[in-house]
Amino acid sequence: MSELAPAKIEDIEIRLLLEALFLKYHYDFRNYAMASIKRRLKQAREQLGFPTFSALQEGVLHDPALLPRLLRYLTVQVSEMFRDPTYFKAVREKLVPHLRTYPSLKVWVAGCSNGEELYSLVILFREEGLEDRTIFYATDINHQALEAAEAAVYSLDRIPLFTENHRKSGGKSSLSDYYQAAYGRVSFAKTLRRNVVFSDHSLVTDAGFGEMHLISCRNVMIYFNRNLQDRALGLFKDSIARKGFLGLGAKESLRFSSHANAFVDFVREQKIYQRRAE
């Protein structure tokens, strides 16, 4: 019997580790894109000081305190306020006129990470006079990310980029109106959270929310394999009100999804789709 190559053995170890995470902690990364998850697990293994993926599996199974440290590598927490300003400009100019016609609104930011996209939308809705009639649902699989999102504290050196993005998005105020700076950090105003519901949620295993007028899930599904992408899009389809909107990331698309026919292009170049009325 021929021996397996080291890379093949590593793949087996990774699959067993992902299965262990699911069985013990109910975090399901088994349908994430293998190349991406392998790259992140290699970084975690090295930084956490384990010689093999099997050793990492044993560690996380027997030491629950290791789990949040591992999750920091497995869940992507890289974002910025008003990231891709043309997307937010399209929301402001194309979606807001439609959203104004509703007496109340529900917005779901799926995979909200540390809150940058959430607060971008809250600020945009405040500037457009829609915040008071809107409930924002901010969800993520990573509880620590949710805590960071709720705290809304960011490094001061990120603010010039946030400010420039806000300006390019068509911002109608100064971003500095919404935060206070001290000791190299900025803290965004608590009033931005008054209509926000933060919740643990997995696009892999959990059900959706009902009657959303806008779901923004950007740069999350690029880490999923095709089957998991399809599941997430089905979840969004079932959660969006008729003629509601779905915003995806620049590298994401509905094109090959079995749910594509449930949507029409609304702002094609910004990957904003509208749920069909029927």
Rank of each mutant, 00 (worst) to 15 (best):
W108R: 10
P6H: 09
S176K: 14
V153D: 03
F22N: 10
I240M: 11
Q47T: 12
H26T: 12
T205C: 06
L214Y: 05
A189Q: 13
G129C: 05
Y183A: 14
D230V: 09
N165W: 11
L70G: 10
L18Q: 07
L192N: 11
H98W: 05
E3N: 11
S239Y: 02
I159L: 15
Q270Y: 03
F82G: 02
L130S: 07
Y273L: 05
L74Q: 06
P68M: 08
L4K: 15
L21C: 12
R268E: 14
E93V: 01
Y102N: 04
L214R: 00
Y32L: 08
D28R: 07
S258C: 10
S79R: 06
K243W: 01
R167S: 15
E252G: 03
S239Q: 02
L4D: 11
H259F: 14
A151D: 12
S54T: 13
E46I: 12
M212D: 01
K251S: 15
R40H: 03
Q274Y: 03
M34W: 13
L66Q: 12
K89C: 08
K190M: 08
T134C: 12
G249L: 09
D63I: 13
L124R: 01
Y273S: 09
V91S: 09
P6M: 12
L233K: 05
R40F: 01
Y273M: 06
S36Q: 14
Y27L: 12
Q43W: 09
M221L: 15
G234V: 03
A277G: 14
I12N: 05
I272W: 08
Q229F: 00
L175M: 11
N225R: 13
A149R: 06
N31F: 12
S113N: 01
Y137H: 11
L70I: 10
I9C: 03
R194D: 14
L175N: 03
L48D: 13
A149Y: 06
L214G: 02
H98T: 08
S216G: 03
L74E: 08
A90M: 08
Y27G: 01
L66E: 10
Q144L: 09
F188R: 04
K172I: 00
I12Q: 14
A181N: 02
K106P: 01
F88N: 04
Q270W: 08
L95D: 00
L203F: 10
S253F: 00
S202K: 07
N195C: 07
L41E: 04
G208N: 13
A145H: 08
Q57N: 14
P68I: 03
A7W: 07
L61P: 04
E128N: 05
G208A: 14
R39V: 05
Y25T: 04
T101N: 12
A181Q: 13
I215Q: 02
S216C: 15
S104A: 14
F263I: 08
R30P: 00
N114C: 11
E252Q: 02
K243R: 15
A262P: 00
Q270N: 10
R231G: 05
L235Y: 01
L192D: 04
V122N: 08
R242M: 07
V91E: 07
V186N: 10
R255A: 15
F82P: 03
H201R: 13
L214Q: 09
L156Y: 11
P64F: 08
K94S: 14
E164M: 05
